[in-house]
Design a protein around this nucleic acid. Structure first.
Length: 474
RNA sequence: UCCCCGGUAGCUCAGCAGGUAGAGCGAGCGGCUGUUAACCGCUAGGUCCCAGGUUCGAGCCCUGGCCGGGGAGCCA
């Protein structure tokens, strides 16, 4: 249904169609009388007595050119005062453009100004800005080409995630944000409390809102397992919190994670799922965000598109940790950190595998039990567990997952090994006590996926409002 | 948290035997133009991150903070 809202009482224009800039730029729109609304990117005046406006409404990367005849009643009083950032409504006729840079343009018959943006103080100028600067004005940066493109890609990825899992028969499960399991092994947690930290004497956890210490979730996995072990195939998709003091281009204190969990999936099925999943996302972005991807290829990362196409047509390498160690040891590379069975792989090692040795995504499996969490299934060799990490060139680990330990005795033994308190996990252990099944799952960091796809160098530039140590503005 | 680098006009940066500041872009004004990273000319605009110190004199040197960036660790 066409939106016919008008900012002023009707003046005979309520029957005009409201189009987005994206719709208006299609050749099929030529000849239609329409209403467009958005923000002015630039104004150019012609001494022929008329002006050009570039209008953008975020519906697509490109602007639409508006021709404003000098005859409009507010031409001198308002149109000539328009600057970057002003918001307007344009009513006019879409016509073929004689210019070379655009197929269509709008010949305005009426323009209404919603809001001004003083060029003396408006921080977004008609020039390129550094990402560092844009981060300090996170409330305005969505009005830039690059951040707008990132957000459209991010939306497409999110949509694709849901479509993929829904089509594969997974149920979307909403796991809790607040959790009482304080030792999921995924890192430092944010405490959630209503107690007054200044109170004297110091408050007791029993008196807290939930009667026990609670935290923001670091993963929905354990809860997702509950539903996998009852509904079969499920996934979670929501915010995740890590209180680690990480200051890197690929860590956030608050990020979004997708975690599928499936009963009766072994590690091979899990890997197949992960590869199919990633490829589906890439394919959808290439198809649905081609204009934005061309922008990234031109201004951000020249190989943005070809990298995705390459990943799409290649099978992911599947390699055990032990084999990887072997390759690294014989690489002849002079690594800063030693390559030794039993030690975790460093970023430089992962980068060598994906960027130098294989030139494609690599799924590493079967890591030493000592460097992986208790819930990963123990292999028959008793030295390794059924873990899998999907490594991508440039961003490194984008997916971490495993086949879960479904044997009660092995699981409890591993928990003891890692010093966990059995009573905290009574409900998790019940899944193994009653009708246990083999099952698997993984977690994908949404921002890392968007980073990989767009080629953006810093994860803080692919999330609307980044939370990092010492920074929670906006 | 560790290791490097940096904080000078709205933005991006230059300045350096220590003698109180410049450019480009942006902005304002004027010219030109169916224009489109527009172009040409002129103008305005700066507690040189903060606090101490050395010095006749500090953007520049020293000390201590604060903030930002890159790399590492942690991981998604």
């Amino acid at each position: 249904m066409a939106n016919t809202f008008s900012p002023e009482p009707s003046r005979g224009c309520v029957d005009m169609e409201c189009l987005t800039v994206r719709e208006a730029r299609l050749p099929a729109a030529v000849g239609r009388e329409v209403i467009l609304r958005g923000w002015v990117r630039t104004r150019r005046d012609s001494k022929g007595g008329f002006s050009f406006l570039e209008l953008n409404d975020g519906s697509c990367l490109g602007n639409i050119q508006v021709i404003v005849p000098g005859e409009l009643p507010n031409y001198d009083s308002e149109i000539r005062q328009l600057t970057t950032g002003c918001s307007i409504q344009v009513e006019g006729l879409i016509q073929a453009s004689p210019g070379e840079k655009q197929a269509v343009e709008v010949l305005a018959s009426r323009i209404v100004v919603f809001g001004w943006a003083s060029p003396e103080t408006y921080l977004l100028q008609k020039k390129r800005h550094s990402y560092e600067f844009l981060r300090t004005i996170a409330h305005l940066r969505p009005r830039t080409n690059s951040f707008g493109a990132v957000m459209r890609v991010r939306n497409t990825v999110a949509r694709s995630i849901h479509e993929f899992f829904q089509e594969e028969g997974f149920l979307y499960i909403h796991t809790p944000i607040i959790t009482a399991s304080d030792c999921e092994g995924a890192g430092a947690m944010f405490r959630v409390t209503t107690l007054d930290p200044q109170a004297n004497p110091p408050p007791k956890a029993e008196d807290d809102f939930f009667g026990k210490p609670t935290y923001l979730t670091v993963s929905g996995q354990l809860e997702a397992e509950v539903f996998a072990c009852s509904l079969g195939k499920v996934y979670t998709f929501g915010p995740t919190f890590r209180a680690e003091n990480s200051n890197t281009t690929r860590h956030l204190a608050e990020f979004w994670m997708v975690e599928p969990e499936a009963a009766f999936f072994d590690l091979a099925a899990n890997m197949d799922l992960a590869e199919r999943f990633l490829k589906r996302i890439l394919r959808d972005v290439l198809e649905r965000c081609s204009e934005d991807m061309e922008f990234f290829a031109r201004w951000v990362e020249p190989s943005a598109i070809t990298t995705l196409e390459h990943v799409l047509q290649e099978d992911f390498i599947r390699l055990s940790y032990t084999e990887a160690i072997d390759i690294l040891a014989r690489s002849g590379q002079n690594f800063e950190f030693p390559v030794e069975w039993g030690r975790d792989l460093q970023a430089e090692h992962e980068r060598y595998l994906t960027e130098t040795h294989f030139h494609k995504p690599v799924i590493l499996t079967d890591y030493p039990r000592t460097i992986k969490p208790f819930y990963m299934r123990l292999n028959d060799d008793e030295r390794t567990v059924r873990a899998m990490d999907v490594l991508l060139p440039r961003v490194g680990e984008i997916i971490g997952g495993s086949q879960r330990e479904e044997r009660l005795d092995v699981l409890t033994q591993r928990m003891q090994e890692q010093g966990l308190r059995m009573e905290d996990y009574w409900w998790y252990l019940d899944l193994r006590r009653y009708g246990t099944v083999p099952h698997s799952g993984f977690g994908l960091g949404l921002e890392r996926a968007v980073q990989f796809i767009t080629g953006m160098g810093n994860i803080r530039d692919v999330i609307p409002f980044p939370r990092t140590p010492g920074s929670a503005e906006f």
